[in-house]
Simulated scan of single mutants.
Amino acid sequence: MQVHSFLHSDTETYTHVLADVQKQVCAIVDPVLDFDAKSGRTGTTSVDEVIEFVREQGWELVYIIETHAHADHISGAAHVKELLGGQLVIGQHITEVQKTFKQIFNFDTSFRTDASQFDILTDDGEILALGDITITVMYVPGHTRADMAYVAADDEKTVVFVGDTLFAPDVGTARCDFPGGDAKTLYHSIKRLLALPDDTMMYLCHDYPSKGRKHCPTTTVAAQKLGNIHVKEGINEAEFVEMRERRDATLDMPRLIIPSVQVNIDAGHFPEPEDNGIRYLKVPINALGK
C-alpha cells in the first residue's frame, strides 16, 4: 500500500491517492477543483497534478472517493472521472444532505435527491476492494449527516481517511453548525475513530497549521488521543459538546460554502448552461450563517 498526498494551498485541502502498487490500481480521495470566488472562474491546475501523477505511475483509477459533500471547496471529481474514469463513491446519507440543500437553494424538480449522480453509495461496515487492499467504510456523522471515514488495510498496515471529522491535534475537530450537524453525534463518531489501533495513520482532509508548523497530511490515533486540543483522552462528551457549540457560534461561514455545496451535492457538476451559454450558481440571501 502506498498513499501520496497533494495539498491544494488555496483551501488547505489534501487530496490523497491510495494505491496497490503491485496490482497497479488506485483510488483518489477528495479531489479539488480550483475556484476563484471573485471572478467565478474555475481551473484544474491542482487536480491535473494529481491526474498526471496517476498517469505517470501507470495505475488504473478504480474509485474517486468523497468523504462527504464539502462546504469549503468544489469537488474535482467530475474532471477526474472524465479523464481517468473510475467510480464515484460517497456515503448513502448524501440523500439527506441533497434534500436539505435542495430546499435552501430552491432547486427545481429536475434536481435528483436519490444520489443517482454518484456511482457507489456506501454504508457503515461495507467493504470496497482495491487490489489486495480492503477499504472498510465507517459512518462518522456529526460534521454533516453524510460523513464517512474509509479504513484501508493490507498485509502491511492500516490507514484511515478521516475527512473533516478530525484535524491535526493542534487544530482540533470539525464544526457542527451546518444543517444536519450535531456536536454530540460528532463526539461519538470521533470515539469510533480513536478506537482504532494507536499506530493507525490518519490521513486528514485539511490542515490549518498553527504558527511555526508546516502543513502535514497525517497524524496518528495515538497522537490524537494524547494531544487533540478538543477531544483528547480525559475530555468527556458534555465538555466537548459545550466547547464545540460555543466555538461554532463564533465562526463565519466557509468562504466557498455557497458555490461548493450546490455543486458537490450534484457530484461535482455545475448547472447546465442557460440560453446565453453561461452557467450560473445561486446565492441564497439570509439563509445561511448567523
Rank of each mutant, 00 (worst) to 15 (best):
F6D: 01
D10W: 12
T11G: 01
T11M: 04
E12N: 13
Y14D: 10
T15A: 09
T15P: 00
V17T: 05
A19S: 14
K23T: 14
K23D: 11
Q24K: 15
A27F: 10
P31M: 08
V32R: 05
V32S: 02
V32K: 06
A37H: 09
K38Y: 11
T42G: 01
S46C: 08
V47I: 13
V47H: 05
E49A: 15
F53P: 00
F53W: 13
E56C: 11
Y63R: 11
I65M: 03
I65D: 01
I65F: 08
I65K: 04
E66T: 13
E66G: 09
T67L: 00
A69W: 06
H73E: 00
I74Q: 02
S75G: 05
A78Y: 10
H79E: 00
E82S: 15
L83Q: 14
Q87S: 14
Q87H: 14
V89W: 03
I90M: 00
Q92R: 14
Q92S: 15
I94T: 04
E96K: 14
V97N: 00
T100M: 01
F101M: 03
F101H: 09
I104H: 13
D108G: 11
F111V: 08
R112M: 02
R112L: 02
F118M: 03
I120S: 00
L121N: 12
L121G: 12
T122D: 01
D123P: 04
D124C: 05
L128S: 11
A129G: 10
D132W: 00
D132A: 09
I133L: 04
I135Q: 03
T136C: 06
V137Y: 06
V137S: 10
V137F: 05
M138D: 05
Y139T: 07
Y139E: 03
P141S: 02
R145K: 10
R145I: 01
A146F: 02
A149W: 13
D154T: 07
E156C: 13
K157N: 13
V159D: 06
F161R: 07
G163H: 06
G163R: 03
D164Q: 08
D164W: 06
T165A: 10
L166P: 08
L166C: 04
F167R: 08
P169Y: 09
T173C: 06
C176P: 14
C176M: 02
G181P: 13
D182V: 05
D182C: 12
A183Y: 08
K184M: 06
T185Y: 07
S189H: 05
K191R: 15
R192L: 03
R192F: 05
R192N: 05
L196Q: 06
D198A: 15
L204E: 11
C205G: 14
P209A: 11
P217Y: 07
V221K: 10
Q224T: 10
N228Q: 06
V231S: 03
K232N: 12
E233V: 12
E233M: 08
E237T: 15
A238Q: 13
V241Q: 08
V241C: 06
E242L: 12
E242F: 15
M243G: 12
R247I: 07
R247Y: 15
D248Q: 09
A249V: 06
L251Y: 15
D252Q: 14
M253W: 12
I258M: 02
S260W: 10
V261F: 02
N264R: 12
A267S: 07
H269F: 07
F270H: 04
N276Q: 09
R279D: 00
L281K: 13
K282W: 03
V283S: 01
P284N: 09
L288Q: 05
K290E: 04
